[in-house]
C-alpha cells in the first residue's frame, strides 16, 4: 500500500509543532503512526503535511507520584514498564490489551486518545480514571477533562492546531479494572468496559466511574450503572444490579459481527466482571 505524497516536518519543540500546524491547515500530527499510517496507506487519509512529534523529548516524559503524568508520545511499551502505573489498573490493563507487541512498541496513549477510535481501549480507561488531557495551541495551554475530550467517532475536543502534550491521571485512590472482548481479527474492542471505584472506610462506594468503548460510537460513561453501584457496598448482588443497567441510555453500535443488541449484552457482562474485580 502506498500513501499519497505529503510534506514532512520534524519539530524539536511543542511550540514549533504548534506553529507548523497553524501555518498548514491540512497538516496532521504523526506520533506512533499506528492509526494514521494505515488510513494513509489505504488513501483514506491524504494529509498535505505530517508533523512528526517523535523528536520532542519532553512528550515522552512520564512521572508517577500517586497520580501520573504521561507524555503524549510515550509508548505503551515504555509505560507498561512503569510499575507505578499498575495502581491505575484500568489504564494499565487497557494498555496491555492494545493491539499486539509491535503495536505497543510504537503506539502511544496520546495517539490513541487523539485518534478517538470508537473501538479503542484507551479512551474508556481515561474516562473511568477521570483523566485530564493537556493541549497546547497558539493561544497557550488548556486542560480538557476526559469526559469532554471524546466528542464523536474519530473526533476530539482538540483544535486542528493544538498538540496533545500530556495525560494526567489523578491520585484518587480508586480501585479500577478494564475488561475487554476483542474482535478476533482486528484486536479492537467489540466491547470494553473500564470501571473505577472510590470507597470509604466502611467499604461503601462513594464515587463510581464506568466507561464503555466498542459498543458505542464514542467512549461513553454508563451513568445508570454508576448510579446503581454508588452508595452500595459493592456486594455480588449490588454488582449484578448495576451491571443489569449498564447499557441503559447508551447509543449502541452494531455490525455483522456483533449487533447492537449483543454489544449491549456484552456491556453488561463486562461491567459485571470489571466491577467484581475492582471491588474484590
Amino acid at each position: 500500500m502506498y500513501p499519497a505524497a505529503f510534506d514532512y516536518a520534524k519539530p524539536a519543540t511543542v511550540a514549533e509543532a504548534v506553529s507548523l500546524l497553524s501555518a498548514n491547515p491540512d497538516a496532521k500530527i504523526l506520533n506512533g503512526g499506528h492509526s494514521l499510517l494505515p488510513a494513509m496507506k489505504l488513501r483514506l487519509a491524504q494529509p498535505a503535511m505530517l508533523v512528526d512529534i517523535g523528536g520532542i523529548s519532553e512528550l515522552k516524559q512520564v512521572s508517577v507520584n500517586g497520580g501520573a503524568t504521561i507524555g503524549a508520545a510515550a509508548t505503551y511499551d515504555d509505560l507498561l514498564k512503569h510499575d507505578g502505573l499498575k495502581a491505575h489498573t484500568a489504564l494499565y490493563e487497557a494498555m496491555s490489551k492494545v493491539g499486539d507487541v509491535q503495536v505497543r512498541n510504537r503506539g502511544t496513549v496520546g495517539g490513541s486518545a487523539a485518534h478517538a477510535d470508537p473501538a479503542a481501549d484507551i479512551p474508556a480507561a481515561l474516562i473511568a480514571l477521570g483523566a485530564e488531557l493537556v493541549a497546547v495551541g497558539p493561544n497557550g495551554t488548556r486542560t480538557i477533562a476526559a469526559d469532554d475530550f471524546f466528542v464523536d467517532i474519530l473526533t476530539t475536543a482538540l483544535e486542528p492546531d493544538e498538540v496533545l502534550t500530556e495525560i494526567r491521571i489523578p491520585a484518587s485512590g480508586a480501585s479500577s479494572a478494564y475488561e475487554k472482548f476483542a474482535h478476533p481479527a482486528s484486536g479492537y474492542a467489540v466491547c470494553g468496559v473500564a470501571v473505577a471505584l472510590e470507597r470509604d472506610g466502611e467499604g461503601t462506594v462513594t464515587n463510581a466511574r464506568i466507561a464503555v468503548t466498542g459498543s458505542v460510537y464514542k467512549a461513553t460513561r454508563c451513568s445508570a450503572a454508576e448510579a446503581a453501584i454508588t452508595g452500595t457496598k459493592a456486594t455480588a448482588a449490588d454488582i449484578e444490579a448495576a451491571a443489569a443497567v449498564a447499557a441503559d441510555g447508551l447509543e449502541l453500535a452494531g455490525d455483522h459481527y456483533a449487533s447492537a443488541e449483543y454489544r449491549g449484552h456484552l456491556t453488561k457482562v463486562l461491567t459485571k466482571r470489571a466491577l467484581t474485580r475492582a471491588a474484590g
Binding site: 474482535h183 478476533p184 481479527a185 482486528s186 479492537y188 455490525d255 455483522h256 459481527y257
Partner: peptide, 20 residues
C-alpha cells in the same frame, strides 16, 4: 460476508479473522 450490494464487508485482515 457481503452486503446486498456485493461489497465485501470482511475485506481486510482487520475484519476477516484468520486465527492467531
Amino acid at each position: 460476508v457481503y452486503d446486498e450490494a456485493g461489497q465485501l464487508l470482511t475485506g481486510s485482515l482487520m475484519d476477516y479473522a484468520i486465527p492467531k
